[in-house]
Design a protein around this nucleic acid. Structure first.
Lengths: 285, 285
DNA sequence: CAGAACTCCTTATGCCGTACGGTATTATCG
DNA sequence: CGATAATACCGTACGGCATAAGGAGTTCTG
């Protein structure tokens, strides 16, 4: 999903993204002194986006926070899309650029994933930015660089490594998104996760009394994992505690997969991990 | 990423979702004969959404396709959010509800993932619907049921199984989203993936001449995986062929992870897969 | 035939991004 | 000093969006 970044004059976008942080101080041009700066606008926009749902991020809202009219922003930034690209890369500077390799790649990947997860939860709007045509700013590149460096330790061939990088990103993004949206929904509607699920379960019973026969496996899974978080502890919500376990376990499974693939590969045999081959045609109509 | 579904009167939403397909034929109420139906509206909306980017899905556009005014839709459907929920569940009926268990769980999961991927590519807008507070319709439930059934074959404990289900969904969604957005960007801007990357690479060189020193691992990965798809074959695009390999390999790694976790677990020992434990605090500022 | 129930429409409100043109400010050049 | 040009910022306006409110016409039940 994704909201798309700017499309107007990519050269200008890239220049803005990669501009040295404190550049362009000396002023010689005529005209009134600039009261704003690209940096200030990006910062304000991040604050607005962090404060609520993505839809709240409007040019008007950002300008208001800076005491200007929305049109004043267009002096500094080509449009909303480009602003989003700048915000996107800027916040990525929060993430570590290096992980200690001494503890082994598993520990490093685990730390990387945890940091990224926490980062997405701090800035959920980042998850709205499309990653098909990446922003290609320096800070996101650094995050990718860190993970790539860690994974080269595994000795996996480059093509497999690329796949693993993708899988890890998608996993962390997906998990974080679930939690972020859940939080958002809770504050937006005033209904907690638990209340929501309880009420929904009740409705399901009414509207689909044959649920247990139609979906036996789902019911079984629900039964066997239920009641674990019913202790009513404070702090994180019902769903979030479950999500944390899901994250940890899922990540562990992925790491096991990397380890196993590594073992299969390193003898110098086929560069492909084992398992059934996959071909792109779906079987559905 | 996520557009949220309806929030007005959940009872009505659930009733609409779980309504029997051909129900409510006999007409006794006064008033003019209904010229539309929920089904017809949902179908039209799906057609509109499939035809282009999600932003093109507006109440006006759907109504226009049906020869009505946008407000006429509100007679049948509470609002856009609820309509989206209905569309979401409706298309999920395209997916198989059962996978042959005789070939083993690996083959079945592979088939499931391939089908789901193809499905998302047929209906990219589905990826925009939030899955934090699931729609909980019958057809999506059936997809979950199918995967759960397959995975119970592995003998994994329920809690691990839940994590694996999540990981698989996030993986397929993420991979499909990359391709879908890439296609969208290509048709929207008229610039192919390859052109885009080439042009971007050129800009990067200009704007960040020290790229190779700053990001050596990324450069190495790029070098070692480059030129594989340079044969200029027709059909699928440059990026998509890479994405297909990435999908297959990533899925294989995941399956390896499931297999390894299964082996670690089945002796009756700890129900947790191996590897470093994960704790929810990030280390970043 | 009266009244109620129902479908569908027109209109209006308040958002959004941003195009256009105007005004005030500040530098440089003569 | 005055003229000129470049710049920052603003007011207004356009076309889009979801949807609230209320009205017109249609079809049933009594």
């Amino acid at each position: 999903m994704g909201i798309f970044g700017g499309q107007g004059d990519p050269e200008r976008s890239m220049a803005l993204l990669w501009a040295a942080p404190g550049a362009g101080d000396t002023r010689v041009a005529p005209g009134p002194r600039p009261g704003l700066s690209v940096d200030a606008i990006v910062e304000a926009a991040i604050a607005v986006a962090d404060a609520g749902p993505v839809e709240g991020l409007s040019m008007r809202a950002v300008a208001e926070r800076l005491g200007r009219s929305s049109m004043a922003l267009y002096t500094y930034v080509p449009g909303k899309g480009e602003l989003l690209d700048l915000m996107y890369d800027r916040v990525h500077a929060e993430l570590p650029t290096r992980y200690d390799p001494d503890g082994g790649w598993r520990a490093a990947v685990t730390a990387w994933a945890g940091d990224l997860r926490a980062f997405y939860l701090r800035h959920p709007w980042v998850l709205q930015v499309s990653y098909a045509r990446p922003v290609l700013g320096p800070n996101e590149q650094a995050v990718l660089e860190a993970l790539t460096g860690i994974l080269y330790e595994t000795g996996l061939p480059a093509r497999t490594l690329r796949s693993v990088v993708s899988a890890l990103f998608h996993f962390v993004r997906g998990m974080a998104q679930t939690i972020a949206e859940s939080r958002l929904a809770a504050t937006a509607t005033g209904v907690s996760d638990r209340e929501w699920w309880v009420s929904r379960a009740g409705m399901l019973e009414k509207v689909a009394p044959d649920f247990a026969e139609r979906f036996p496996m789902s019911v079984r899974l629900g039964r066997e994992t239920a009641d674990q978080y019913d202790d009513g502890a404070e702090g994180t919500s019902y769903l979030e505690r479950g999500a944390e376990e899901t994250f940890g376990t899922g990540l562990a499974v992925l790491l096991e997969g990397i380890e196993a693939t590594r073992r299969n590969t390193s003898p110098g045999g086929s560069p492909e991990p084992g398992g059934a081959p996959w071909s792109p045609e779906g079987r559905a109509p």
